[in-house]
């Protein structure tokens, strides 16, 4: 096809050694040079392209690949949707819907921290402390009751009297969230009371339905009644 390339083995002249190389070149050198030229070429002409036809199998492989990948493109195009790719793994599908866990720290930071403070010590004379508070750590149901329905009126916490109003959260937080945040306050700042479950919260919620804020006396009565 087309022009035949020049013979690849055509002898090429050797680059002249620089003039400052005034060294006597004996026959051995000449012989070695000839070998070099033959074997690696001291300097061949600039390379050029031959015009051999490419092997047929290269074309064949290219065309086959084009068809296969064309099929792949159609098969996995995702209907050209602009929505982000969703992975559906068989293992995850078998395991059922994902159970989301609630982080009590996050709930505390978002809901409680404004009044009770990050160190759990509250604000003197205004908001009672949670750290070391007997109302928080003595039994599990009392703090759940308070978080569910709020608290109003005088209360003594760690031998200090407070008189304020705490918001109810029964219509704002889920059972999971209340369980998580109560567990958090019962186990933070050197508190080491037991964890509470969402079921305990659900039971108390079902027991009281919708009601107003607790008073300290009512809470004590509820605790003794148990």
């Amino acid at each position: 096809m087309a022009t035949k390339p020049k013979s690849p083995h055509q002898e090429q002249p050797k680059t002249a050694p620089p003039a400052d190389e005034g060294r006597f070149r004996d026959d051995t050198d000449v012989a070695v040079d000839a070998i070099h030229q033959r074997i690696v070429g001291r300097e061949q002409t600039e390379p050029e392209e031959g015009f051999e036809p490419p092997p047929v199998w290269v074309w064949a492989a290219s065309v086959v690949l084009l068809f296969v990948m064309g099929f792949y493109l159609g098969r996995y195009s995702g209907s050209w949707s602009t929505v982000a790719h969703e992975v559906e793994s068989p293992a995850a599908a078998a395991a059922g819907p994902v159970k989301r866990t609630v982080n009590g720290t996050v709930v505390f930071t978002g809901v409680c921290q404004t009044c009770h403070q990050a160190d759990g010590n509250g604000v003197a004379g205004q908001y009672p402390p949670l750290a070391g508070s007997e109302w928080v750590t003595r039994d599990a149901a009392t703090p759940i009751r308070i978080v569910l329905y709020g608290l109003e009126g005088p209360i003594t916490v760690k031998q200090t009297a407070f008189n304020n109003k705490m918001t109810p959260f029964h219509d704002k937080l889920t059972d999971d969230e209340i369980a998580a945040v109560v567990t958090h306050i019962r186990s933070s700042w050197r508190n080491s009371a037991s964890a509470v479950t969402a079921e305990e919260v659900a039971d108390l919620r079902a027991k009281y339905g919708v009601r107003g804020s607790w008073s300290a006396a009512e809470l004590s009565a509820e605790r003794s009644a148990r």
Binding site: P8, H9, G41, E48, E49, G50, E52
Partner: peptide, 25 residues
């Protein structure tokens, strides 16, 4: 690679057409 292989060997590169296919693909 396209320069030094044929340059050192003193042979033309095998095929201009393969070169074209390679470059444009």
């Amino acid at each position: 690679a396209y320069y030094f292989i044929p340059k050192v060997l003193g042979r033309p590169i095998y095929s201009y057409y393969l070169g074209l296919l390679g470059f444009w693909a």
